[in-house]
Design a protein around this nucleic acid. Structure first.
Lengths: 163, 163
DNA sequence: TAAAATTTGAAACATTATAACATTTACAGG
DNA sequence: CCTGTAAATGTTATAATGTTTCAAATTTTA
């Protein structure tokens, strides 16, 4: 590596969020999808950091907004956002994270730091290629790939307990 | 592909099970681990088919054995079996499946048929290599890989609703 | 505007997993 | 053979995650 990826270095995270929201609006418009206030708010909450957020964490944030939501509200919004490629679900954590490649056609690979909790989403074409090969050697038609790597991010290899 | 993998063709599944149990006994002995009756029974239940089984499914089977078990019993047994490489947890399904490479040092890749539910575990060194490369290009120290592919197995591409 | 479709609200419930503490069992050392 | 210790299991309760169902409101379409 040369420079560290965004989640692993200090940055103006508000810019991440507002860029994500801007992108999301454009993407939804192109797809004739309705980015309603609830959906946009959930997306914004998911983007609060580069750490995945659980559905019930989102729920709690909505509550402290004064919005008295029930679980289905959150799960619906998350489903919508997933369907439109705006967030990803991290199966190994039962949690959600903003997609950093929204709009691009991609298969995400997630590097999950077990120390600080930050997640970096990558697009690794070589990995996808090999996965596709391995599947088709078995006659398997791959439709959806879950690829999550737990380990230590660069910062946490140096010193523990980063944000 | 040439011949279909085991889960995708008729076979004497009892042989799978008894082989798995035999292997498990040997592995536990080598590791000075105690494959107690409960643990062995849970392993046997997990191996009932090539479909992953949920913890509460295991619990139900134990109950119909006459064994009045509670959730912790099952989760403990599953933890033990995972720790010794005898079963894998499929994160995208919250379910468990017998490891078909027990004893071998490996990183599993799972092909999960959405139609019949069967799961094939592969070892794909080329995939592992590329995953490792992608991670280290980001300075990330990979420790644990979750790789689960949902799609259609060869049988279910031809005709739906296989066992 | 009226009908249809989508979105949201709300209550109940289902599923998956863990915490905490008591009891029993296996086993090594005296 | 006892006996202390660690490992495994039992038991109860509860936490965390996710879904079903039906009603009400809102938006879109005709």
């Amino acid at each position: 590596m040369s420079a560290r990826a965004i989640p692993y270095r200090p940055h103006n995270h508000d810019a991440c969020v507002s860029q994500a929201l801007t992108d999301a609006r454009a993407i939804c418009q192109r797809q004739n999808a309705r980015l309603t206030p609830i959906r946009e708010r959930v997306l914004e909450l998911i983007w609060q950091s580069h750490k995945p957020l659980g559905a019930y964490d989102v729920l709690a944030e909505l509550s402290s907004d004064g919005h008295n939501a029930a679980p289905p509200t959150v799960y619906r919004a998350l489903d919508f956002l997933q369907q439109h490629g705006l967030v990803h679900r991290i199966a190994s954590l039962n949690a959600f994270i903003g997609c950093t490649h929204a709009g691009e056609h991609h298969t995400g690979m997630f590097l999950i730091c077990r120390a600080c909790g930050n997640v970096l989403e990558l697009t690794a074409p070589a990995v996808s290629t090999e996965v596709g090969k391995a599947a088709s050697e078995e006659g398997f038609r791959a439709e959806n790939t879950t690829l999550e790597i737990a380990g230590l991010c660069p910062r946490c290899q140096a010193e523990p307990d980063h944000d």
